[in-house]
């Protein structure tokens, strides 16, 4: 998985590409630290953009849940942006993630 941060006004957009799985634990920790640092200027909203993510496994979904917990701790509002269809959409559908985290279909 690779990530890119874009700060604009009151939100930080975290865009993921590639595959999010078990082996991304370390990268994801860095991502969380980077996101916290990027929001220090006053961003209130985190947007996790999964539109260009190809694949996510259960451990990857677990990492998204960690981000949710971090967002709550940092008092940020977390929204997931995901594609309408594909592997990631299917994983989010089976796990009913929209009942846990704001989900925007793109």
């Amino acid at each position: 998985m690779e990530y890119q941060l874009n700060t604009s006004g009151t939100s930080v957009e975290i865009s993921l590409t590639g595959e999010l799985s078990f082996s991304d634990l370390k990268t994801f920790r860095e991502l969380l630290t980077d996101t916290i640092n990027a929001s220090s200027a006053g961003a209130k909203q985190w947007i996790l953009n999964l539109v260009n993510l190809k694949y996510i496994d259960s451990a990857g979904l677990g990492l998204v849940l960690r981000m949710k917990a971090t967002a709550e701790k940092e008092q940020k509002e977390l929204t997931i942006r995901a594609a309408e269809s594909g592997d990631v959409a299917q994983a989010l559908e089976i796990t009913k993630f929209h009942e846990l985290i704001n989900l925007e279909k793109n």
């Binding site: 677990g62 849940l65 917990a69």
Partner: peptide
């Protein structure tokens, strides 16, 4: 008992 980020289907 489960840590954050771990779950079970």
């Amino acid at each position: 008992i489960m840590p954050i980020g771990q779950f079970c289907t």
